[in-house]
Amino acid sequence: MDAARPIASLHRSCFPSAASGPPMRRRVTIDDISRYTGLSRGTVSRAMNDRPDVSERTRARVLEACRALRYVPSRAARSLTTGRSDAVVALVGDLRAPFAVACLRGVLRQADRLRYAVYVTEQGDDPAGAQERIIELTGDRIDGLLVAGQVEGRLCAQLCEAAGQRPLVVCCRAEGVRCDTYLPDHPEAGRLVARCLLSHGRRHLLYLHRLGDAEAAERLAGFRRVCADAGITPTILAAADDTATVEQHVAGLREADGIAASDDRLAIAALWACARLGRTPGVEVLLLGQGNTPACEVLPWPLTSVDFGGEEIGQRAMETLVARINGRRVGAASVTHVAPRLMERATTGAARP
Rank of each mutant, 00 (worst) to 15 (best):
L10E: 13
C14S: 14
A18W: 13
A19E: 13
S20G: 10
P23R: 12
M24L: 11
R27N: 09
D31P: 00
D32G: 07
S34R: 02
G38D: 07
R41G: 06
R46N: 02
N49Q: 09
D50A: 14
D50L: 11
D53F: 00
R57N: 11
R59W: 01
R61W: 00
A68R: 12
A68C: 09
V72C: 07
V72K: 09
P73C: 10
S74Q: 06
R75Y: 07
A76N: 11
A77L: 10
R78N: 09
S79A: 07
L80C: 08
L80E: 08
T82A: 09
S85Q: 03
D86Y: 13
D86H: 14
A87W: 08
A90S: 12
V92W: 01
A97G: 13
P98I: 10
A102Y: 15
G106K: 00
V107D: 10
L108T: 05
L108C: 04
R115G: 14
Y116H: 09
Y119S: 05
T121M: 05
P127M: 03
R133S: 08
I134E: 02
I134R: 00
I135Q: 12
I142E: 00
V151F: 00
G153A: 12
G153T: 09
V169A: 06
V169R: 01
V170Y: 02
C171Q: 06
G176S: 01
D180Q: 06
D180M: 03
H186V: 06
H186A: 14
A189G: 12
G190S: 06
L192C: 04
L192S: 03
L192G: 01
L192Q: 03
R195K: 11
G201S: 05
R202H: 04
R203E: 12
Y207P: 00
Y207D: 02
G212A: 14
D213P: 08
D213F: 09
A217L: 07
A221G: 11
R224Q: 13
D229Y: 02
D229N: 02
A238Y: 12
A238H: 14
D241N: 02
V246Q: 14
R254W: 04
E255L: 05
G258Q: 11
A261P: 04
S262L: 04
D263H: 03
D264N: 07
A267G: 15
A267W: 15
A270S: 03
R276I: 01
E284K: 00
V285H: 02
L286R: 08
L287D: 11
N292G: 08
V298C: 11
V298F: 15
L299K: 14
P300S: 04
P302Q: 12
L303Y: 11
D307P: 13
E312L: 09
G314V: 01
R316A: 06
E319D: 14
E319N: 08
V322E: 10
V322A: 10
A323M: 05
G327W: 02
R328S: 03
V330C: 15
G331C: 08
V335K: 08
A339V: 13
R341H: 15
G349Q: 01
